[in-house]
Design a protein around this nucleic acid. Sequence first.
DNA 1: ATAAAATTTGCGCTATGGCGTAAAATGAGA
DNA 2: TCTCATTTTACGCCATAGCGCAAATTTTAT
Lengths: 84, 84
Amino acid sequence: MKITARTPDQIGNALRRVRKAKGMTQKDVSARTNLRVATISSLENGDPGTQMRTVLSVLAALDLEFVVQDRVQESQLSIEDIFS
Amino acid sequence: MKITARTPDQIGNALRRVRKAKGMTQKDVSARTNLRVATISSLENGDPGTQMRTVLSVLAALDLEFVVQDRVQESQLSIEDIFS
DNA sequence: ATAAAATTTGCGCTATGGCGTAAAATGAGA
DNA sequence: TCTCATTTTACGCCATAGCGCAAATTTTAT
């Protein structure tokens, strides 16, 4: 599992996809993070105002991590276009 | 350039390292993002409250991107321990 | 269809991010 | 050492994140 993200939408979609792939509900993530279900929802829906602590907390709950790397030249297709 | 980050501090340090490696000042990043120098400073110093829009904006200014991936088992050493 | 689960939205609240502006502190070069 | 550039910190301001709590909406299964 390795998804490039440049926008809040892409990050949100990636997190939702991974969560579902792991068979977890927002409630499950909420329990692991002590964040409200509404907060998880907001993040997954691409709220750009979501704080770093919140994103990192959810990442940890999903056993994910961030990698910061140089931008790679890629097609105009976003991850959302590729995966339904 | 590829740096794993799990904490606001690690993200901040990574961004600062990359910025300097590219010979840019916080003022340069500020000019490219329309964020205040103080905001860049806050981010680089690991403020967990920094918003996603801010992080993504700075990433773009540094020609970087996020990759979300499964956590990798690694030593206890953080990136800060490895690089001065 | 319909019941249950899951997700989204709303309200009032407190805390704080990022803004403009400016000054203070730190770092780097002559 | 002494500037000048860079970074950090402060103050007042407005906007909003995330909280508890709850209701509404959507999705999933039976």
